[in-house]
């Protein structure tokens, strides 16, 4: 059950990371709205693609036996998803415009 909550927290981390990165490095920013959207999809994409290596919400809960290190990895990957998503989206945006 707590796994479901972790999935949501993970997305929020992606949103915060994308907005934080966009705020710090202005040339990659799409504004709060764009950064938020990219943050959601970036973190979901990375966690859904690679989480099964051992840091998806179910593995973190490990049958009710919480593994903190996996949660840290999940959060880092999720934040990375937000940041990488923002860089890729900006590159794509510049390319097609």
């Amino acid at each position: 059950m707590t796994g479901t909550l972790i999935a949501l927290i993970s997305i929020l981390v992606g949103i915060i990371a994308a907005n934080g990165f966009g705020y710090t490095v202005k040339k990659y920013s799409f504004g709060i709205m764009g950064n938020t959207i990219v943050g959601v999809f970036g973190s979901v994409f990375l966690i859904k693609s690679f989480g099964r290596l051992g840091f998806d919400p179910w593995s973190i809960m490990n049958n009710e036996d919480f593994v903190g290190l996996r949660l840290v990895i999940n959060i880092v990957v999720s934040a990375l998803g937000g940041v990488v998503g923002l860089i890729l989206a900006k590159l794509l945006y510049n390319k097609i415009n």
Partner: peptide, 25 residues
């Protein structure tokens, strides 16, 4: 379409727990 995009994103975020609940609850 901008307003659509915000709503769509929120729909994705809030849709994920729905998917999980089929397996948990």
């Amino acid at each position: 379409m901008k307003i659509f995009a915000i709503n769509f994103t929120m729909g994705v975020v809030t849709g994920i727990p729905m998917e999980f609940q089929f397996g948990t609850n």
